[in-house]
């Protein structure tokens, strides 16, 4: 049976370790790299190496940055009295793309998952409470997911923040824009009704 040269096999094995990449995709990527010009491949390798070497987590909010602190925490026009709590740096990108949030963020780096034994001490809850105690924000918006673990995390944060005298709000849950009611599941509809507002 024909086999790849050892160097190629190593590269294929490394690529298949990546999330969402199976053997066929790894093969496709590797052959694409082999076909490309050397400079293009070098650009890819350099950018990946630079990401690995220079991207770190912001010590204030936990967002991704290549500087001491992230661009949002450095921005003087941001409202520091308004903190939005999210699970993951990807959520910061999603909210920033919405383009309406004037405050700053706090990234938890996960969520409380009781059935996996992941508790508040495994995510950045202590940092949030310290930040709330130090900066006394006007409002903390909890924007964790609406799945059961996201809700459990929100309940926990709400309890702890309220005990510290902080106003806590939760992002609304309900019907996605552009969809009709007859395709909605009962749980989503119930949440949409609960979260209704004067119009």
């Amino acid at each position: 049976m024909a086999r790849y040269p050892l160097l190629m096999q190593r590269a294929l094995d490394a690529l298949t370790e990546l999330p969402g990449i199976g053997p066929r995709s790894a093969q496709r990527i590797l052959f694409h790299i082999l076909r490309e010009r050397r400079e293009e491949t070098q650009t890819l390798l350099d950018s990946l190496a630079a990401v690995k070497a220079r991207i770190r987590f912001c010590p204030i909010c936990g967002n991704l940055t290549s500087h001491q602190t992230c661009s949002i925490c450095r921005d003087p026009s941001r409202d520091r009295g308004l903190i939005c709590v999210v699970e993951d740096p990807k959520d910061v990108i999603a909210l920033e793309q919405a383009g309406k949030f004037p405050g700053v963020y706090h990234v938890l780096m996960g969520k409380i998952v009781p059935l996996d034994g992941i508790g508040h001490e495994d995510i950045r809850v202590k940092e949030l409470l310290d930040r709330a105690a130090k900066n006394a924000p006007r409002e903390v918006i909890i924007a964790t997911g609406s799945d059961i673990d996201g809700e459990t995390t929100a309940l926990y944060l709400s309890r702890e923040l309220k005990a510290a005298g902080v106003k806590v709000t939760r992002i609304a849950a309900g019907i996605p824009v552009g969809s009709s009611l007859d395709f909605m599941d009962p749980v989503t509809l119930m949440k949409a009704l609960e979260g209704r507002r004067e119009y």
Binding site: P114, L115, I148, E151, T152, L155, Y156, S158, R159, D185, P186, V187, M190
Partner: peptide, 24 residues
């Protein structure tokens, strides 16, 4: 297809933790 859902079972942190334990 849902028959019943139990919003009260997970409405507070304490109940949510309780029903996680019961489910496990």
């Amino acid at each position: 297809d849902l028959i019943e859902h139990f919003p009260r079972a997970v409405a507070t942190l304490e109940r949510s933790a309780f029903f996680h334990y019961l489910a496990e």
